[in-house]
Design a binder for these strands. Structure first.
Lengths: 145, 145
DNA sequence: ATAAACCCTAAACTATACTTTAGGGCAAGG
DNA sequence: CCTTGCCCTAAAGTATAGTTTAGGGTTTAT
């Protein structure tokens, strides 16, 4: 039994319009049509769609996902290319994760400051320094609360 | 000494056009102008800009960053609101990081499969199953290499 | 045989974040 | 004076990823 687009939408959490958009974008060349022209998703299609979602979740662009799918469609001989593509993507994702972690650490530092007992003084101090910074340069002070 | 927009661009890695865009979007209300109408960034401004970049790096939308900056501009009394805003953002970022990690783990699983000695068979097997899946449902088989 | 619930495409529209272009001022050196 | 290098704004353009709309078949139960 094949699945309708609505069923697939429910199973994957992707909007029906998104599934059609992906199809038009060349991400779903493997999805067949029934006698009425309706998309008929098999379980194998769902597996591939799941991979597409993983790539999307990790920030891969549609155009690159299409490239991966093209390799899959071209058969087992492209296994090495697929592997290379995924490995390159993996490295980019890891780098991005690290960058986000660094920024998050800075946000955590600020949070911790706001949570400390001396938060009030510290914030007031920051305020004073920013103001002084403006005055020092003969610039109008926008910190006017 | 205040910094020109070009200098700030070099220090932050943000394009000049991006800095102007951020200013127009209300992210840089603290940046003063000199007698010629040129933007004059102080060190304090750079610190705030750095925070903006952290928020941007972690995926916060411009509109939300503006909200944070508005709180900063409103003075030390808004410290609790800022803290709440950052804490909420932090949770979203952590959740997103975990989701990415899960998807990455699946990509890693595929990579590991491609790297195994039995990769060739496994890929051929996947291919056969996807094909069978189509035939079983009386659908055209798009896997035609 | 008709209404309700699905499915389809093409094309226009939206959102987000920038970048580019066009037109023009200011400041320093030759 | 005038060229060169910065700076400015406003507005249009680009890129990416969808979503919505308009118009139209299909399937199923009544």
């Amino acid at each position: 039994m094949a699945y309708s687009i609505q069923t697939v939408s429910e199973k994957t959490g992707l909007a029906i319009s998104t599934l059609r958009f992906y199809d038009k974008a060349g991400l779903l060349p493997f999805v067949a049509r029934d006698s009425s022209g309706y998309r008929a998703f098999t379980d194998g299609d769902l597996a591939l769609l799941h991979t597409i979602v993983c790539l999307k979740n990790t920030g891969m662009k549609i155009a690159d996902i299409r490239r991966y799918i093209e390799l899959v469609m071209a058969g087992p001989t492209t296994a090495k290319d697929r592997s290379a593509l995924l490995a390159a993507h993996r490295e980019k994702v890891v780098a991005k994760q690290q960058e986000i972690a660094r920024s998050l650490a800075e946000i955590d530092y600020k949070l911790q400051m706001y949570a400390s007992p001396e938060a009030e003084e510290k914030v007031a101090q920051e305020w004073a320094m920013a103001s002084a910074d403006k005055e020092k340069n003969g610039l109008p002070n926008p910190f006017t609360a």
